[in-house]
């Protein structure tokens, strides 16, 4: 039950992150080149996960996860979703964005470069 909760939150989060970053133009952390692909991705990840939450008590009659455990699992899933997004998007977009210059601070830089390119730019190239 705890594992089911964890993976549902993880899948739903990855979908939501992809749709949100695509809508706001953060090419560096998007898996896709087209916004519509990201919206479709959310549709096939977040919607089924939320449907599973909706029917949770039909599958787990007496099943609840205790508050603290739920909070811990939720945070773990969110951190995993963010980590997964940053790593996969950096791998997928490395070549297409390698010539860009992430000269902005914060998220703005991720419109032009991947997360790891931005970190590299800050901590290695500026030295």
């Amino acid at each position: 039950m705890a594992f089911e909760y964890f993976y549902l939150v993880l899948i739903a989060s990855v979908g939501v992150i992809q749709a949100a970053v695509a809508y706001n133009g953060f090419r560096g952390i998007s898996f896709f080149s087209y916004k519509v692909s990201a919206y479709l991705f959310m549709l096939v990840t977040t919607s089924p996960a939320m449907a599973r939450f909706f029917t949770w008590n039909e599958r787990n009659d007496t099943g609840v996860i205790e508050g603290r455990e739920q909070f811990f699992l939720f945070m773990l899933a969110i951190v995993a979703a963010i980590g997964f997004t940053l790593v996969l998007s950096s791998l997928l977009k490395h070549w297409s964005l390698r010539k860009n210059n992430g000269e902005f601070d914060g998220f703005e830089a991720l419109k032009e470069v991947t997360f790891f390119q931005a970190l590299r730019h800050r901590f290695i190239k500026r030295q």
Binding site: Y5, S13, A19, A20, V21, N24, F26, M50, W56, Q70
Partner: peptide
């Protein structure tokens, strides 16, 4: 149920973290 609305609200928070037309 104890999950749908709470998780849904948290996902909205997650989306809002990257949301905005400008900085």
């Amino acid at each position: 149920n104890d999950y749908l609305i709470i998780v849904g609200s948290c996902l909205v928070m997650l989306a809002l973290w990257v949301w905005g037309s400008d900085a």
